[in-house]
Design a protein around this nucleic acid. Structure first.
Lengths: 151, 151
DNA sequence: ATCCACCCCGTACCATACTACAGAGTCAAG
DNA sequence: CTTGACTCTGTAGTATGGTACGGGGTGGAT
């Protein structure tokens, strides 16, 4: 934002900015390579120079990741933030989609949980595991869940 | 189980066993490399020969994966199944631990969902995204969630 | 005999999000 | 001016769960 002359912006090294943002130095460089963080100014020596904006951006990345956004999605959010043509509707749409992702994941997990709990009830006692009904059931049981809990 | 002589066990090629189990040929070899599937007999040509037991085992793997077990955990379950010293309690313990994993994941996801929903309410209207409260909030908001929703 | 689908092995590659390392140069304090 | 902490680049490795490929041999049907 503020450019075109020497400002009182205190500059930081990559180590300082990383510490302030609560991430590792290597990670800062990684985000730069991945296009999440714009390439900073350099000193004559080649050392990267950062201002406070970089700390905010890195914290944003960290927080958005905590909220379940992938780095690709974080990049989109960051792009929205800096795109004058982007509307709040665009932002809400991203958030809504992520909420739906989360709800789908929760539903899947709860279905899986239900299956596991019901399996647990079929396997009482202390006998040998070799003929434990759980293992038999996993064998035969089919398609309570269509997709594995990844994605 | 049945060994020591020529039995009426129809043998299958890797392609046939893969098709029956609903996975890919490469995946079968992958599971073998990873120790989930024991190395099968070979024909003189080197072709792998499988019986029905292999199909059951592969389906077990597939199903356990759908239930959220990692390949490592699946290997443990398979080991239990073939270990005469293993008890049903051992099996139940695995299932209980997985249920707890799942419940923890669900709690995390629901916390994240709540944060996202509350963010969504702060960003009404159709203005530009550049100053959308969601993005501001992600900036400042701290630590509703300690760990990202991976693991 | 020929054909084509199938199988063999080993290795490399996909995505995700980092993390580590080697070998060299730099900055600042004492 | 030396020392030690820090930074640079580029590459490689981690974990997870596979998928793809190249270059060759095999099986069974025609």
């Amino acid at each position: 934002m503020v450019e075109g002359g020497p400002v009182n912006t205190v500059t930081m090294t990559i180590g300082q900015v990383a510490r302030k943002a609560g991430i590792g130095v290597e990670t800062v460089r990684f985000y730069e390579r991945e296009g999440l963080l714009e390439e900073p100014e350099r000193r004559a020596s080649g050392y990267r120079q950062y201002g406070e904006e970089a700390v905010r951006r890195l914290r944003f990345i960290r927080r958005a990741k905590e909220l379940g956004f992938t780095l690709r999605e974080v990049a989109e959010l960051l792009a929205l933030r800096h795109d004058p043509g982007a509307t709040r509707t665009d932002v809400r749409e991203r958030v809504r989609a992520k909420v739906e992702d989360i709800e789908a994941k929760v539903r899947d997990l709860q279905m899986i949980r239900a299956v596991l709990l019901s399996l647990g009830e079929t396997c009482q006692g202390h006998g040998p595991a070799t003929d434990c009904p759980i293992l038999e059931a996993i064998d035969r049981d089919d398609g309570v869940e269509a997709t594995p809990p990844d994605a």
